[in-house]
Design a protein around this nucleic acid. Structure first.
Length: 451
RNA sequence: AGAGAGGUGGCAGAGUGGUCGAAUGCGACGGUUUCGAAAACCGUUAUACCGGCAACGGUAUCGGGGGUUCGAAUCCCCCCUUCUCUACCA
């Protein structure tokens, strides 16, 4: 008999899984988009070099059809059960015990059916969700075709590469020479990739942070100081979970993650919110330390400050109405460029190709500065428009004309990440007598030259 | 960290097994009235999903999850969180 099913209930000491906590599918691409613009979706997935687009989209559409049929069936059964329950209540009240018992037979039977339908519905929803989690965002029309970094489009280049004097050195030598950043001490205290900034090195960090924050505020961004540990729901909200789990440091005791970027806590501020139109666009800037395990990253390119487990970054985040998001992206890039110009660093702006851009992005510009002693470009910022991809997970909406809620667009960019900026500042501005810092930093640092 | 009390709609705040998606008040919006405004009066005022061209109908949601029951805001279990007292600390 099925009547004993209550006793087989599993122990409830286990944390509920993501799927049970968020019963409704929190999708990334919207099913409605897959359904209504199938061709566009398939073309977009192909441009991103997603291998199994046609199969996965067909599978989602198939499951979605089943989901809707099940939902209808389930709702109808529930409606009948609710109606019977009301009748039983009325019969009980009027003293007709026998009549009530008669109806209970039907309602008990109905319950078994609805339970089966509900379980199936949950399975189908989980299936849809798992497939959607696999699908990357669709690229914007302007994204160049291509597979690797070599296919990225150079949008523009600014500033002249400096000619270094004969004794010029890469930054990992300069930091030792002037004793401003100490990797050995970091290794002793923590491990590789956790540098210790000392004296003028520490003051330069603080100067850059203040400079970037002040510039962001002047450009209309509200400063936020968020937590640097986040919970699991936030990790899912911005898409670090489930796919990039291994890249974040995790505190198992409390199930919290150290943030890899301020994007995570700041964007999640707006999770499950319906934002009033008057408050749009949201413009936030936040300084935080960032933590990345960088599992599996080695090689010559990661020497010195090029790649760290802990570093400082100022992040800018915007949330806009869909029709304004690309103007906002241009504005963000312009702001980042203005920072690089004020610091006097030669840079270039890249539009990433379909194969090189991030999973969640619709359009990404990378900004790279010229590292004179290393003789190569270093990525110091990445600015992206996620359109509704993140907002769909976040349930971040506004009320459009006519009272309907509609997903917003989310964007973010680094403005800026410190280590590679420091590397370029040290290398590009070195002289025989020391390192001449750009004018704009003098008052922030309290000095104009290192050495 | 220990003890106790709470978490209900935009806000305040009722509701301790049925007719409760939820009284009442405030706020907001629309209307009547007015030369205009205030006041008064009338009405509207959550989100998501399913069906429907639509009108509309159905389902779910009272911090989150699970359970008991024909039926749960209400009873039971777990988790989160707020307040008070104690302990501790910056």
């Amino acid at each position: 008999m099925l009547g004993h099913c209550g006793q087989t209930a599993k122990s409830t000491t286990r944390r509920p899984t993501f799927a049970t906590r968020f019963h409704n599918p929190r999708t990334m691409l919207q099913v409605s988009v897959l359904r209504e613009q199938t061709d566009r979706v398939l073309a977009g997935l192909a441009k991103k070099h997603y291998p199994t687009g046609p199969e996965d989209v067909a599978a989602v559409l198939d499951l979605d059809q089943r989901r809707r049929a099940l939902q209808t069936r389930h709702d109808d059964a529930q409606a009948e059960a609710n109606d019977l329950a009301r009748q039983i209540g009325a019969l009980m009240k009027s003293g007709d015990k026998a009549g009530a018992e008669a109806l209970k037979i039907r309602t008990t039977e109905l319950k078994q059916h609805t339970k089966a339908t509900a379980d199936e519905l949950t399975q189908v929803e989980i299936g849809i969700q798992q497939l959607l989690y696999k699908l990357p965002n669709l690229p914007h029309a302007s994204v160049p075709a291509g597979r690797t970094a070599a296919d990225n489009e150079v949008v523009r280049e600014h500033g002249a590469k400096p000619d270094l004097y004969a004794g010029a050195q890469p930054h990992w030598e300069l930091i030792k020479k002037y004793d401003i950043i100490d990797f050995e001490l970091g290794i002793k205290v923590t491990g590789a990739g956790f540098p210790v900034y000392k004296g003028q090195g520490a003051r330069l960090q603080r100067a850059l942070i203040n400079f970037f924050l002040d510039e962001a505020r002047a450009a209309g961004y509200t400063e936020i100081q968020p937590p640097i540990l986040v919970n699991e729901a936030s990790g899912y909200g911005t898409g670090q979970l489930p796919d990039k789990e291994g890249q974040m440091y995790h505190d198992a005791a409390d199930n919290l993650y150290l943030i890899p970027t301020a994007e995570v806590p700041v964007t999640n501020l707006y999770r499950d919110e319906i934002i009033a139109v008057e408050k749009l666009p949201i413009r936030n800037a936040a300084y935080t330390p960032c933590f990345r395990r960088e599992a599996g990253s080695w090689g010559a390119d990661v020497r010195g400050l090029n790649r760290l487990h802990q570093f400082d970054k100022i992040e800018i985040v915007q949330i806009t109405q869909p029709e304004h998001s690309y103007a906002a992206l241009d504005q963000m890039v312009a702001h980042i460029e203005s920072l690089l110009q004020k610091l006097g660093l030669p840079y270039r702006v890249l539009r990433l190709c379909g194969g090189d851009m991030g999973f969640t992005s619709a359009l990404t510009y990378d900004l790279e500065v010229w590292s004179a002693a290393q003789g190569r470009w270093l990525e110091v910022s990445s600015a992206s428009n996620f359109e509704t991809y993140q907002a769909n997970r976040l349930k971040c909406r506004y009320r459009a004309e006519g009272g309907k809620t509609q997903l917003l667009h989310t964007l973010n960019g680094s403005a800026l990440a410190l280590p590679r900026i420091v590397a370029a500042l040290l290398e590009n501005n070195q002289t025989a007598d020391g390192i001449e810092l750009p004018e704009v930093l003098h008052s922030y640092c309290g000095f104009g030259r290192i050495g």
